[in-house]
Design a protein around this nucleic acid. Structure first.
Lengths: 196, 196
DNA sequence: TTTACTTATTGATATACATCAATGTATTTA
DNA sequence: TAAATACATTGATGTATATCAATAAGTAAA
């Protein structure tokens, strides 16, 4: 079981979505697990079934897949956010992506079984589940829309303006794989931008 | 109110997701509305707020947006499916896409207000809402993955094999806009394929 | 049926990006 | 600190796809 401090942010993050009464919360929290992973380590690998919801307490994680021998980075997850492999968790098919820590990270794990039993027991959790997926869905719509913008240069500029710190923390080649371009091309884009 | 025949498929489509007891169903169905639209007409236009869930009884609908004066087709909706503008319905911001009938279509409309009151009243509807978004989300993940495949030719071939009838029913230029290529390029891809 | 209008094909040229190869610059690791 | 390894830059060249323009083939309207 976790210390009070451990799920401080966790509870806050949930409360912003829906109010969970004391009773339900106590029932929920006893099953939470804590885990620490180092830079480079994996939460899930391709082929595994995702059976946990993760709350990222601290750190930075990315999801990626390999296609034609090249890595494609799909998403970055930053601290104080929930995530799972949507596809695997919801459909119970094997993950098509891997989830790797880009920095040392602290996680809180919720097992799928436990979460689903909470759905059955408490309407507020059923609602939490609905709203969480809705939010994930909206985020995906926005992300996809973003990366469908015309040029790679615009995509990079947009990332620069919305999440400048990410570009500092993450190697260029991973940023490039996120933007769906080669690192050579990103290098040239950066050169072009710096010249104005 | 709708005739029995009118929501026959509708009820079936819901039952595959979650069981709705008689009482809840009767409460729900009284507010359903029917609507018929002709080819070329719109369900929602860009800038409107989407306040209805649609069940497409018959017909074919596409969503699209305009960027740099060019149409981009995002999704096709076929008969016996539910949809709404996810982004607008869930966030209550204006639609960024338009929804246009590609053929004469029959719709069943559920108002958002009514649906949300069903969420409040019945746990089974709360669950229906959750699972519906989960399914929409999984579908989007798969669609995005699909269209991120390497070449446009592969994308087109995949569409040909998974949904050949769509290519018969829909003008090439709309298929091209769905594949994110020009209609000229699609024409050449088709030529290449026909030659083997 | 003829006319107009939209949609599809084909050609010539331009552009954004990938690939491969070489070199330079950081970061680990010993 | 030196050596090893990973990462970033730069250049030369190739390829997928866009753009513009002309023509052809369908489809709807008069």
């Amino acid at each position: 079981m976790l210390s009070k401090e451990d799920f401080e942010n966790f509870k806050t993050a949930i409360d912003t979505v829906v109010y969970i009464p004391e009773l339900a919360w106590n029932d929920f929290k006893i099953q939470l697990q804590k885990k620490t992973i180092k830079k480079g380590e994996y939460i899930w690998r391709e082929g595994q079934i995702c059976n946990h919801l993760v709350f990222l307490k601290t750190g930075l994680v990315r999801s990626f897949s390999i296609s034609d021998g090249k890595e494609i980075t799909h998403t970055f997850y930053e601290k104080r956010n929930f995530f799972y492999d949507d596809y695997s968790f919801l459909s119970q098919n094997p993950c098509k992506k891997a989830y790797q820590a880009l920095e040392g990270s602290e996680l809180v794990l919720v097992s799928r079984t436990h979460l689903y039993s909470m759905y059955d027991k408490y309407k507020c959790f059923e609602r939490l589940g609905r709203i969480a997926v809705e939010q994930a869905h909206i985020k995906m719509i926005q992300d996809v829309e973003l990366l469908n913008k015309s040029s790679s240069e615009d995509n990079y500029k947009h990332l620069l303006s919305t999440n400048p710190s990410l570009i500092q923390r993450v190697p260029q080649k991973i940023i490039a794989s996120y933007l769906n371009i080669t690192s050579e091309h990103l290098s040239r884009i950066r050169l072009r931008i710096s010249k104005g």
